[in-house]
Amino acid sequence: MADNSASSGRLKYEAGFAREVYGMENGSYLKLCMQCGVCAVSCATFKIMDYSPRRLFALVRAGRKEEVMKSNTFWMCTTCLMCKARCPRGIPIVDVMHDLKGLALKQGYVNYPQAAFYQAFWQDLAGRGRIFEGGVTARYFLKRGPKDFGKIMAQKDVGLKMLSHGRLPLRPPKAVKGKKELMQMVAKARELEQKGAN
């Protein structure tokens, strides 16, 4: 964890943000957190998280929205399910992280590169119903702009190797035939989910 210190200001407990999070699809599971701390060290990326999941959840309860949303914690989640498997209260922490990522995307907390990756991935997926890795990569670097230019170069070697071993298809897969219907289903589900949440 990067942040070990206690801030100097006085923390004001305020229920608004907690309610917002509890209102999300999996957010209400957070109510069950007993602050045991197993998740804090069960995560594949715990060493680089701003806050451990446990601490993030304590901040949610305390109503500290800015700190929560600006933290890298949920973006670091790799969906490896370890925390979910271990959580003694059965909290699907991974799914909560999905919700927090979703909230961040929706509300514009998108500074981390992962945000761009998620957006790029979804755009590529939505266009075809299947993923084209080349497409995702291109979209991602477009979104990130010049600041990630160095990274493209760094990936070059690996890319060439993959290409030479036939691991990097140059052409996108065929689109799903029922793509239109698929997207109708998704739209309906999003609509129903919105209704259900409110």
Binding site: E25, N26, T78, T79, D95, M97, H98, D99, K101, G102, L105, F117, Y118, Q119, F121, W122, L125, G129, R130, I131, V176, K177, G178, K179, L182, M185, V186, K188, A189, R190, L192, E193
Partner: peptide
């Protein structure tokens, strides 16, 4: 036949769990 992407680890975050899971159910 005519399978579609499961959404990987991304779709749930972008469009929500339930809509992403509907994609899988198709």
């Amino acid at each position: 036949p005519d399978w579609n992407c499961c959404g990987a680890t991304v779709a749930s975050s972008v469009i929500g769990d339930a809509p992403a899971q509907v994609m899988s159910l198709r």
